[in-house]
Write a protein that binds this DNA or RNA. Sequence first.
RNA 1: GGCUCGUUGGUCAAGCGGUUAAGACACUGGCCUCUCACGCCGGUAACAUGGGUUCGAUUCCCAUACGAGUCACCA
Length: 478
Amino acid sequence: MSFRVRTRFAPSPTGYMHIGNLRTALYEYLIAKSQNGDFILRIEDTDRERLVGDAEEVIYSTLKSVDLEADESPKIGGNYGPYRQSERKDIYIKYAKSLVEKGKAYYCFCEKSESESMVSGHKDKCRDITNAQELLKSGKSYVIRQKMPLDGKTVFEDMVYGKVEVENKELEDQILIKSDGYPTYNFANVIDDHEMNITHVVRGSEYLSSTPKYNLLYEAFGWDIPKYIHLPLIMGKNEDGSVSKLSKRHGAVSFEDLVSQGYLPEAILNYIAFLGWCPESNQEIFSINELKSVFSIERLSKSPSIFDYKKLDWFNSEYIKLKSSEEFLNLALPYIKCVVKNENIDIPKISELLQKRISHLNEIPSIISFFEILPEYEIELFENKKSKSNFESSHLVLKLTLRAISDVSSWSYENLHDLFDNITSEINMKKSTVMWPVRIALSGQTITPGGAIEILEILGKEESSRRIKLALEKLETK
RNA sequence: GGCUCGUUGGUCAAGCGGUUAAGACACUGGCCUCUCACGCCGGUAACAUGGGUUCGAUUCCCAUACGAGUCACCA
């Protein structure tokens, strides 16, 4: 028995990667790879009206950035190509016509507008037209439709949802070939999945109710039906509290939007892996390779889940903390540089302060802008109950600090630290009473990344002194 | 509206006939601390409802309610 699992990711090139699609790709990849199988990328570009320029590139680059590399694709080829549906047109027509010959499909010459207003559908009107050949010759445009059974029901087994059954009379005679000669999604899908030896068809549960149509097609051809795995939908919360399929009105829903908001690709992937699936253990942080070894179809959930940006933030901050300081510096650098222009400022040190306190990269500029420009601040900031700081104590501390730093031999954390120890014991105050006004003077804000010593260190002697002098002036002219 | 599917805290979720109903996020109390954060220790909060089946139902079955999906020459 040489049974090799083959799954496929079959996006249509829309120009962006919806997060739900990415999750489908992830699961398809994991299902294949956890069983040593193949993961195929097929481009479903049969909708000629919605074609988007370099949309295919978005697909490649996204998959690449999250390490979901396909074994076969339009780009790298494979034994079952072509992998772009627009290049497989002839194949679909051939199969559709063979169905017509077998009496299982027929030409339908109705206009689109006619179809829409039709009450009882094409089953009654078009199935048995006698002048098809004549109309064909006259060049009248047509579609090819499949004859659906008029009674009975179609039953199928889904690996997630179990047994699903639908009455055949619910099903309209589905279009196989559109009037522009391109196949419909439903038809092309079945043909390609069969021709490409796909063993597990994985897709969102919005396809659950149209799956009987696929089965009827497999049956019409006499082909084996693949295993179906329908995935619960990813939902978004609406403003009024209701939920619906995650879409643009819920915020960033494409992979590239999320990345541009400062989320890390690994974090995004890890989070969406948990939307509709979970491992046996309580572990939450998984690399793609770890996922490969723990993933199992049985643990897929049936109920839809709401995309929670807060939880994504948490995953992202975990991934940020996992980075080495060099890796993080590289990631943070562009964000730091967009506010910090002063060349004397120690950027790696800023980066170090940032790593443990941000959940996404976009927060960086606003957090560190005070390093570049001292913001306007109210003198009242020097008063703080918790640290027992007031105008007089602040004035005293700042004066002593200004004098002390001008004598510092080497500008290091250790030396600065000792310097404040000395001041603290000299004037016999709480440490926080000493540190509070310094930090305010240096930053102009009550919340800062790092403490006073770290900020002092980064700012350097000259700029620090300038800022402390400014604070003293403020306090004196009060 | 017809059809299909779903329903455990605010959110993601474990559970697969007997549990003090896990864990995580969020929220929150405290500790640590030169602020905030990190870290550590705690806390609040859930089985939609009604019938069965059973010695016993969150778990199995059936209704009801609610929610979602789908009914295209879009995928």
